[in-house]
Amino acid sequence: MSLTDAAAAPGLATSEALRVRGATKTYGAVEALRGADLTVRRGTVHAVCGDNGAGKSTLIKLISGVEAPDGGEISVDGRPVHFADPHAALAAGIATIHQDLGLAPRMAIYQNIFMGSELTRRILGVPVLRRRAMIARSAEFLAQLNSAITDMTVPVDTLSGGQRQAVAICRALRWKAETIIMDEPTAALGVRETAQVLALIRRLREQGVTVILISHNMADVVAVADSVTILRAGRTVLERATEGLDADSLSHLILFVGAEAA
């Protein structure tokens, strides 16, 4: 029995939002993934951890459709999928919020939320933006996250780091994402803003959204994640519930579990 199978967490939801089995990816002579596995259960927060070079970024690129695996299988809702690009992943309900958030800082909040999917109507055959509708819908999305932001017309560059994360999440919700990948969402944030982002993640889980969290901050992981996958040298060495773990014990697992096989 593998470590992944042996550590299946009791008490978690049984339906799988996402499953990766035996994923491999090579860049020239570098084996970035050498048979990585990942099981993410619907409506939970699942963290992916590992040292630099463990394969986290490559695994996320495969799941988000940025790159195709050389081998292995990815399944969404129990069905095998093959993503040609990020739009295909988004169509399957998977949105990725990268560390830089991908926001246009000088554009208004509502413009960022509806970027690429603007609401329009036709007047005398000419498409016209439905500005009021987008402002109203943006306010609804932010209200779902219990955000205190009330003015949807202010530029994003006037917001705090935590508030910008909220805008990026709302854009994913606008695309009807059922699974949101968050890459280092609290990097470079202060204590207060980090708390805001962790509250956003908890709020997503409350609403049934599945979150895949990539983080080097073990305190953040044990604070919000239901389960964790640990990668080492391109392989999954452990997948288990976070129950009973603190930041120090999780760091120990990352450093030592599977080290002899690397």
Rank of each mutant, 00 (worst) to 15 (best):
S2P: 09
L3N: 14
D5L: 09
A8F: 08
P10E: 02
A23G: 03
K25I: 05
G28I: 03
A36R: 00
L38R: 04
R42T: 07
D51F: 03
K56G: 03
T58F: 04
K61M: 00
I63E: 02
D70M: 10
G71A: 14
G71N: 07
I74Y: 10
S75G: 00
V76I: 12
G78C: 01
G78P: 01
P86F: 02
A92L: 02
A95E: 15
A95C: 15
H98M: 15
H98C: 08
H98K: 14
L103D: 07
L103C: 06
A108W: 00
R121A: 06
I123H: 07
G125P: 07
G125L: 09
V126S: 07
L129S: 06
R130C: 04
R130E: 12
R130Q: 13
A133S: 12
A133K: 11
M134L: 05
A136H: 13
R137Y: 01
R137Q: 15
A139N: 03
A143E: 11
D151P: 02
D151C: 03
T153S: 11
T153E: 12
P155V: 00
V156Y: 10
D157L: 00
T158S: 15
L159H: 13
S160K: 06
S160H: 06
G162S: 02
R171D: 10
R171E: 11
K176R: 15
D183F: 07
L189F: 04
L189Q: 02
G190S: 06
V197G: 14
E206R: 14
I212K: 00
S215L: 04
N217Y: 11
A219K: 13
V222H: 13
A223C: 03
A225W: 05
D226F: 01
S227G: 10
V228E: 03
L238P: 07
R240K: 14
D248T: 14
L250V: 14
S251Q: 14
S251V: 10
F256L: 09
V257K: 09
A261V: 12
A261W: 02
